[in-house]
Protein backbone atom coordinates (compact mmCIF):
# COMPACT_ATOMS: atom_id res chain seq x y z
CA UNK A 1 0.00 0.00 0.00
CA UNK A 2 2.82 2.39 0.97
CA UNK A 3 4.66 1.58 -2.23
CA UNK A 4 1.55 2.17 -4.34
CA UNK A 5 0.81 5.48 -2.66
CA UNK A 6 4.43 6.56 -3.18
CA UNK A 7 4.23 5.77 -6.88
CA UNK A 8 0.92 7.61 -7.19
CA UNK A 9 2.59 10.65 -5.65
CA UNK A 10 5.56 10.26 -7.99
CA UNK A 11 3.18 9.86 -10.89
CA UNK A 12 1.19 13.00 -10.22
CA UNK A 13 4.45 14.85 -9.68
CA UNK A 14 5.86 13.72 -13.03
CA UNK A 15 2.42 14.25 -14.51
CA UNK A 16 2.47 17.86 -13.27
CA UNK A 17 5.39 18.66 -15.54
CA UNK A 18 3.90 16.71 -18.45
CA UNK A 19 0.55 18.40 -17.96
CA UNK A 20 2.01 21.91 -17.84
CA UNK A 21 4.03 21.44 -21.02
CA UNK A 22 1.23 19.56 -22.78
CA UNK A 23 -1.25 22.27 -21.80
CA UNK A 24 0.84 24.88 -23.62
CA UNK A 25 1.37 22.57 -26.59
CA UNK A 26 -2.31 21.88 -27.02
CA UNK A 27 -3.22 25.52 -26.42
CA UNK A 28 -1.00 26.54 -29.33
CA UNK A 29 -2.36 23.75 -31.50
CA UNK A 30 -5.93 24.62 -30.57
CA UNK A 31 -5.53 28.34 -31.27
CA UNK A 32 -3.00 28.59 -34.07
CA UNK A 33 -3.14 25.07 -35.47
CA UNK A 34 0.62 24.80 -35.14
CA UNK A 35 2.45 21.72 -33.89
CA UNK A 36 5.14 23.48 -31.88
CA UNK A 37 8.13 21.23 -31.37
CA UNK A 38 10.03 24.13 -29.82
CA UNK A 39 7.75 23.99 -26.80
CA UNK A 40 10.16 21.79 -24.83
CA UNK A 41 12.83 24.42 -25.45
CA UNK A 42 10.56 26.97 -23.74
CA UNK A 43 10.46 24.70 -20.67
CA UNK A 44 14.27 24.58 -20.79
CA UNK A 45 14.59 28.34 -21.25
CA UNK A 46 12.37 28.87 -18.22
CA UNK A 47 14.75 26.71 -16.19
CA UNK A 48 17.69 28.75 -17.41
CA UNK A 49 15.92 31.97 -16.49
CA UNK A 50 16.09 30.58 -12.94
CA UNK A 51 19.78 29.75 -13.40
CA UNK A 52 20.44 33.27 -14.72
CA UNK A 53 18.53 34.96 -11.91
CA UNK A 54 20.51 32.86 -9.42
CA UNK A 55 23.78 33.88 -11.06
CA UNK A 56 22.81 37.55 -11.25
CA UNK A 57 21.86 37.58 -7.57
CA UNK A 58 25.24 36.08 -6.75
CA UNK A 59 27.38 38.54 -8.73
CA UNK A 60 30.11 39.14 -6.22
CA UNK A 61 32.76 41.54 -5.15
CA UNK A 62 36.09 39.71 -5.17
CA UNK A 63 38.72 40.32 -2.53
CA UNK A 64 41.99 38.48 -2.03
CA UNK A 65 42.72 36.56 1.14
CA UNK A 66 46.50 36.61 1.63
CA UNK A 67 46.29 33.88 4.25
CA UNK A 68 44.73 31.31 1.95
CA UNK A 69 45.91 30.16 -1.45
CA UNK A 70 44.17 28.76 -4.51
CA UNK A 71 45.23 25.63 -6.41
CA UNK A 72 48.06 27.52 -8.14
CA UNK A 73 49.41 28.97 -4.91
CA UNK A 74 48.04 32.46 -5.56
CA UNK A 75 46.06 34.32 -2.86
CA UNK A 76 42.56 32.86 -2.64
CA UNK A 77 39.63 34.90 -3.94
CA UNK A 78 36.83 35.64 -1.49
CA UNK A 79 33.47 36.29 -3.14
CA UNK A 80 30.86 38.46 -1.43
CA UNK A 81 27.58 38.93 -3.34
CA UNK A 82 26.92 42.63 -3.89
CA UNK A 83 23.28 42.12 -3.04
CA UNK A 84 24.14 41.03 0.50
CA UNK A 85 26.38 44.06 0.89
CA UNK A 86 23.66 46.39 -0.30
CA UNK A 87 20.63 44.85 1.37
CA UNK A 88 22.05 42.78 4.22
CA UNK A 89 19.69 40.01 5.37
CA UNK A 90 17.20 40.81 2.65
CA UNK A 91 19.96 40.13 0.11
CA UNK A 92 20.58 36.71 1.64
CA UNK A 93 16.84 36.07 1.58
CA UNK A 94 16.67 36.94 -2.12
CA UNK A 95 19.50 34.52 -2.89
CA UNK A 96 17.89 31.74 -0.86
CA UNK A 97 14.50 32.26 -2.48
CA UNK A 98 15.93 32.84 -5.96
CA UNK A 99 13.67 30.17 -7.49
CA UNK A 100 10.56 32.04 -6.47
CA UNK A 101 12.12 35.37 -7.51
CA UNK A 102 12.71 33.68 -10.86
CA UNK A 103 9.01 32.86 -11.17
CA UNK A 104 8.21 36.59 -11.11
CA UNK A 105 11.03 37.45 -13.50
CA UNK A 106 10.20 34.59 -15.86
CA UNK A 107 6.59 35.60 -16.57
CA UNK A 108 7.30 38.72 -18.67
CA UNK A 109 10.44 37.20 -20.17
CA UNK A 110 8.67 34.06 -21.32
CA UNK A 111 5.65 35.95 -22.69
CA UNK A 112 8.04 38.16 -24.63
CA UNK A 113 9.99 35.17 -25.97
CA UNK A 114 6.73 33.50 -26.97
CA UNK A 115 5.46 36.58 -28.80
CA UNK A 116 8.78 37.06 -30.60
CA UNK A 117 8.86 33.40 -31.55
CA UNK A 118 5.33 33.52 -32.92
CA UNK A 119 5.60 36.86 -34.72
CA UNK A 120 9.17 36.37 -35.90
CA UNK A 121 9.03 32.84 -37.19
CA UNK A 122 6.00 30.68 -36.63
CA UNK A 123 3.39 32.97 -38.20
CA UNK A 124 5.15 32.50 -41.54
CA UNK A 125 4.27 28.82 -41.39
CA UNK A 126 0.54 29.00 -40.60
CA UNK A 127 -0.45 28.12 -44.13
CA UNK A 128 2.22 25.52 -44.61
CA UNK A 129 1.76 21.76 -44.03
CA UNK A 130 2.18 20.38 -40.50
CA UNK A 131 5.39 18.68 -41.63
CA UNK A 132 6.95 22.09 -42.38
CA UNK A 133 5.80 23.41 -39.01
CA UNK A 134 7.31 20.46 -37.22
CA UNK A 135 10.60 20.82 -39.08
CA UNK A 136 10.96 24.53 -38.44
CA UNK A 137 9.97 24.36 -34.77
CA UNK A 138 12.18 21.34 -34.19
CA UNK A 139 15.05 23.20 -35.84
CA UNK A 140 14.35 26.18 -33.63
CA UNK A 141 14.44 23.93 -30.55
CA UNK A 142 17.87 22.63 -31.54
CA UNK A 143 19.17 26.15 -32.12
CA UNK A 144 17.87 27.31 -28.74
CA UNK A 145 19.38 24.40 -26.87
CA UNK A 146 22.73 24.86 -28.59
CA UNK A 147 22.69 28.56 -27.65
CA UNK A 148 22.04 27.61 -24.02
CA UNK A 149 24.82 25.02 -24.17
CA UNK A 150 27.24 27.55 -25.62
CA UNK A 151 26.47 29.99 -22.81
CA UNK A 152 26.06 27.66 -19.82
CA UNK A 153 27.95 24.50 -20.84
CA UNK A 154 26.69 20.94 -21.07
CA UNK A 155 26.84 20.03 -17.39
CA UNK A 156 23.74 20.38 -15.22
CA UNK A 157 23.75 23.41 -12.93
CA UNK A 158 22.32 22.72 -9.47
CA UNK A 159 19.65 25.03 -8.06
CA UNK A 160 18.55 24.88 -4.46
CA UNK A 161 15.07 25.10 -3.08
CA UNK A 162 14.66 27.56 -0.20
CA UNK A 163 15.71 26.00 3.13
CA UNK A 164 12.11 26.08 4.34
CA UNK A 165 10.97 23.91 1.43
CA UNK A 166 13.96 21.54 1.27
CA UNK A 167 13.99 18.01 2.57
CA UNK A 168 11.09 15.63 2.92
CA UNK A 169 7.86 15.30 4.86
CA UNK A 170 6.17 12.31 6.39
CA UNK A 171 3.20 12.27 4.04
CA UNK A 172 1.95 9.02 5.58
CA UNK A 173 1.41 10.66 8.96
CA UNK A 174 -0.39 13.57 7.27
CA UNK A 175 -3.02 11.18 5.94
CA UNK A 176 -3.25 8.99 9.02
CA UNK A 177 -0.86 6.21 8.05
CA UNK A 178 2.03 4.80 10.09
CA UNK A 179 5.11 6.90 10.71
CA UNK A 180 7.84 6.74 8.05
CA UNK A 181 5.61 4.75 5.70
CA UNK A 182 5.39 7.42 2.98
CA UNK A 183 8.23 9.93 2.99
CA UNK A 184 8.03 12.46 0.19
CA UNK A 185 10.16 15.46 -0.87
CA UNK A 186 8.55 18.72 0.13
CA UNK A 187 9.53 20.58 -3.04
CA UNK A 188 7.84 17.96 -5.21
CA UNK A 189 4.60 18.57 -3.33
CA UNK A 190 5.12 22.29 -3.86
CA UNK A 191 5.60 21.60 -7.56
CA UNK A 192 2.34 19.68 -7.74
CA UNK A 193 0.44 22.45 -5.93
CA UNK A 194 2.04 25.05 -8.19
CA UNK A 195 1.05 23.15 -11.33
CA UNK A 196 -2.56 22.81 -10.09
CA UNK A 197 -2.56 26.55 -9.49
CA UNK A 198 -1.22 27.35 -12.97
CA UNK A 199 -3.53 24.90 -14.71
CA UNK A 200 -6.49 26.27 -12.74
CA UNK A 201 -5.41 29.79 -13.58
CA UNK A 202 -5.26 29.07 -17.31
CA UNK A 203 -8.67 27.41 -17.29
CA UNK A 204 -10.15 30.26 -15.26
CA UNK A 205 -8.60 32.80 -17.62
CA UNK A 206 -10.13 31.09 -20.63
CA UNK A 207 -13.46 30.46 -18.92
CA UNK A 208 -14.19 33.62 -16.97
CA UNK A 209 -12.56 36.50 -18.81
CA UNK A 210 -13.86 38.21 -21.94
CA UNK A 211 -10.45 37.74 -23.51
CA UNK A 212 -10.65 34.01 -22.77
CA UNK A 213 -14.15 33.73 -24.16
CA UNK A 214 -13.07 35.38 -27.40
CA UNK A 215 -10.11 33.02 -27.62
CA UNK A 216 -12.36 30.02 -27.07
CA UNK A 217 -14.74 31.33 -29.69
CA UNK A 218 -11.80 31.76 -32.04
CA UNK A 219 -10.69 28.18 -31.36
CA UNK A 220 -14.20 27.00 -32.27
CA UNK A 221 -14.69 29.19 -35.33
CA UNK A 222 -11.88 31.54 -36.19
CA UNK A 223 -13.50 32.92 -39.33
CA UNK A 224 -16.76 33.98 -37.72
CA UNK A 225 -14.97 35.70 -34.85
CA UNK A 226 -12.86 37.54 -37.40
CA UNK A 227 -16.00 38.63 -39.28
CA UNK A 228 -17.28 40.19 -36.06
CA UNK A 229 -14.39 42.66 -36.29
CA UNK A 230 -12.28 41.06 -33.56
CA UNK A 231 -8.55 40.88 -34.18
CA UNK A 232 -8.29 37.20 -33.29
CA UNK A 233 -4.72 36.93 -34.60
CA UNK A 234 -3.54 39.37 -31.94
CA UNK A 235 -5.29 37.39 -29.22
CA UNK A 236 -3.83 34.13 -30.48
CA UNK A 237 -0.36 35.68 -30.43
CA UNK A 238 -0.93 36.62 -26.81
CA UNK A 239 -2.08 33.07 -26.11
CA UNK A 240 1.18 31.84 -27.64
CA UNK A 241 2.93 34.06 -25.12
CA UNK A 242 0.77 32.66 -22.31
CA UNK A 243 1.59 29.10 -23.40
CA UNK A 244 5.30 29.98 -23.43
CA UNK A 245 4.96 31.42 -19.93
CA UNK A 246 3.26 28.26 -18.67
CA UNK A 247 6.08 26.10 -20.07
CA UNK A 248 8.68 28.52 -18.73
CA UNK A 249 7.20 28.54 -15.23
CA UNK A 250 7.10 24.74 -15.28
CA UNK A 251 10.82 24.89 -16.08
CA UNK A 252 11.64 27.42 -13.37
CA UNK A 253 9.94 25.40 -10.65
CA UNK A 254 11.51 22.16 -11.91
CA UNK A 255 15.09 23.34 -11.28
CA UNK A 256 15.33 22.21 -7.62
CA UNK A 257 13.96 18.79 -8.60
CA UNK A 258 16.59 18.01 -11.22
CA UNK A 259 19.56 20.29 -11.97
CA UNK A 260 18.77 21.89 -15.34
CA UNK A 261 20.79 21.17 -18.43
CA UNK A 262 20.49 22.28 -22.03
CA UNK A 263 18.86 19.00 -23.07
CA UNK A 264 16.00 18.93 -20.57
CA UNK A 265 13.54 20.41 -23.05
CA UNK A 266 14.04 17.57 -25.49
CA UNK A 267 13.70 15.05 -22.65
CA UNK A 268 10.22 16.36 -21.94
CA UNK A 269 9.10 17.38 -25.41
CA UNK A 270 8.47 13.98 -26.91
CA UNK A 271 6.71 12.73 -23.79
CA UNK A 272 4.56 15.84 -23.65
CA UNK A 273 3.67 15.51 -27.30
CA UNK A 274 2.54 11.95 -26.64
CA UNK A 275 0.51 13.30 -23.72
CA UNK A 276 -1.22 15.74 -26.08
CA UNK A 277 -2.00 12.98 -28.57
CA UNK A 278 -3.33 10.67 -25.85
CA UNK A 279 -5.37 13.48 -24.32
CA UNK A 280 -6.72 14.58 -27.68
CA UNK A 281 -5.13 17.19 -29.95
CA UNK A 282 -6.43 20.62 -29.00
CA UNK A 283 -8.21 19.43 -25.84
CA UNK A 284 -7.03 21.32 -22.77
CA UNK A 285 -8.69 19.04 -20.19
CA UNK A 286 -7.46 16.05 -22.19
CA UNK A 287 -3.85 17.25 -22.01
CA UNK A 288 -4.04 17.71 -18.26
CA UNK A 289 -5.80 14.40 -17.60
CA UNK A 290 -3.43 12.47 -19.89
CA UNK A 291 -0.41 14.16 -18.29
CA UNK A 292 -1.31 12.92 -14.84
CA UNK A 293 -2.48 9.51 -16.09
CA UNK A 294 0.68 8.78 -18.03
CA UNK A 295 2.87 10.10 -15.23
CA UNK A 296 1.26 7.66 -12.81
CA UNK A 297 1.51 4.73 -15.24
CA UNK A 298 5.16 5.51 -15.89
CA UNK A 299 5.86 5.48 -12.16
CA UNK A 300 4.10 2.17 -11.65
CA UNK A 301 6.04 0.62 -14.53
CA UNK A 302 9.33 1.38 -12.77
CA UNK A 303 8.35 -0.33 -9.50
CA UNK A 304 10.71 -3.23 -8.73
CA UNK A 305 7.67 -5.47 -8.22
CA UNK A 306 6.35 -4.74 -11.72
CA UNK A 307 9.80 -4.98 -13.28
CA UNK A 308 10.38 -8.36 -11.65
CA UNK A 309 6.97 -9.64 -12.74
CA UNK A 310 7.63 -8.60 -16.33
CA UNK A 311 11.12 -10.09 -16.28
CA UNK A 312 9.67 -13.34 -14.89
CA UNK A 313 7.65 -13.86 -18.06
CA UNK A 314 10.71 -13.14 -20.16
CA UNK A 315 9.76 -9.66 -21.37
CA UNK A 316 12.07 -6.64 -21.32
CA UNK A 317 11.50 -3.78 -18.91
CA UNK A 318 8.73 -1.41 -19.99
CA UNK A 319 9.34 1.57 -17.69
CA UNK A 320 10.66 3.76 -20.49
CA UNK A 321 8.17 2.68 -23.13
CA UNK A 322 4.94 2.42 -21.18
CA UNK A 323 3.86 5.89 -22.33
CA UNK A 324 4.39 4.95 -25.96
CA UNK A 325 2.59 1.65 -25.53
CA UNK A 326 -0.41 3.49 -24.11
CA UNK A 327 -0.22 5.99 -26.98
CA UNK A 328 -0.27 3.17 -29.53
CA UNK A 329 -3.27 1.56 -27.84
CA UNK A 330 -5.17 4.86 -27.62
CA UNK A 331 -4.44 5.70 -31.25
CA UNK A 332 -5.67 2.26 -32.32
CA UNK A 333 -8.80 2.24 -30.18
CA UNK A 334 -9.70 5.93 -30.07
CA UNK A 335 -7.68 7.91 -32.61
CA UNK A 336 -9.00 11.30 -31.46
CA UNK A 337 -7.53 10.72 -27.96
CA UNK A 338 -9.24 10.52 -24.61
CA UNK A 339 -10.99 13.89 -24.84
CA UNK A 340 -10.38 14.95 -28.43
CA UNK A 341 -13.12 16.38 -30.63
CA UNK A 342 -14.96 13.89 -32.77
CA UNK A 343 -13.34 13.70 -36.16
CA UNK A 344 -9.92 14.91 -34.96
CA UNK A 345 -7.27 12.52 -36.33
CA UNK A 346 -9.99 10.07 -37.27
CA UNK A 347 -10.11 10.86 -40.97
Amino acid sequence: MDAILLQILNGIDKGSAYALIALGLTLIFGTLGVVNFAHGALFMIGAFVAVTVGKVLEISKITLDPEKTDFLGNPAKIKTPYITEWFGDFGFWLIEWSVLVSVIVAIPIMILIGVIMERGLIKHFYNRPHADQILVTFGLAIVLQEVIKAVYGANPIPQSAPDLLKGSVDFGVMIGMAENSVIYPLWRLVYFCFSVLIIGGVFAFLRFTTFGMVVRAGMADRETVGLLGINIDKRFTIMFGVAAAVAGLAGVMYTPINPPNYHMGMDFLVLSFVVVVVGGMGSLPGAVAAGFLLGILESFASMPLIKDAIAAVGLPSIDQIIIYLIAVIVLLVRPRGLMGKAGMMEE
Binding site: L6, N258, M264, M303
Partner: peptide
Protein backbone atom coordinates in the same frame (compact mmCIF):
# COMPACT_ATOMS: atom_id res chain seq x y z
CA UNK B 1 18.64 -6.29 -0.95
CA UNK B 2 18.06 -5.61 -4.65
CA UNK B 3 19.64 -4.47 -7.85
CA UNK B 4 17.31 -2.39 -10.01
CA UNK B 5 18.42 -1.57 -13.55
CA UNK B 6 17.55 1.95 -14.66
CA UNK B 7 17.40 2.93 -18.32
CA UNK B 8 20.23 5.21 -19.39
CA UNK B 9 17.74 7.80 -20.62
CA UNK B 10 16.06 8.20 -17.21
CA UNK B 11 15.98 11.79 -16.01
CA UNK B 12 13.65 11.56 -13.02
CA UNK B 13 14.71 8.82 -10.61
CA UNK B 14 11.99 9.44 -8.04
CA UNK B 15 10.09 6.27 -8.88
CA UNK B 16 13.29 4.21 -8.49
CA UNK B 17 14.38 5.94 -5.28
CA UNK B 18 10.98 5.96 -3.56
CA UNK B 19 10.87 2.19 -2.78
CA UNK B 20 14.37 2.14 -1.27
CA UNK B 21 13.44 3.23 2.26
CA UNK B 22 10.90 0.46 2.68
CA UNK B 23 13.14 -2.23 1.17
Amino acid sequence: AANVLTPLTTTDFSSYVAPVLNS
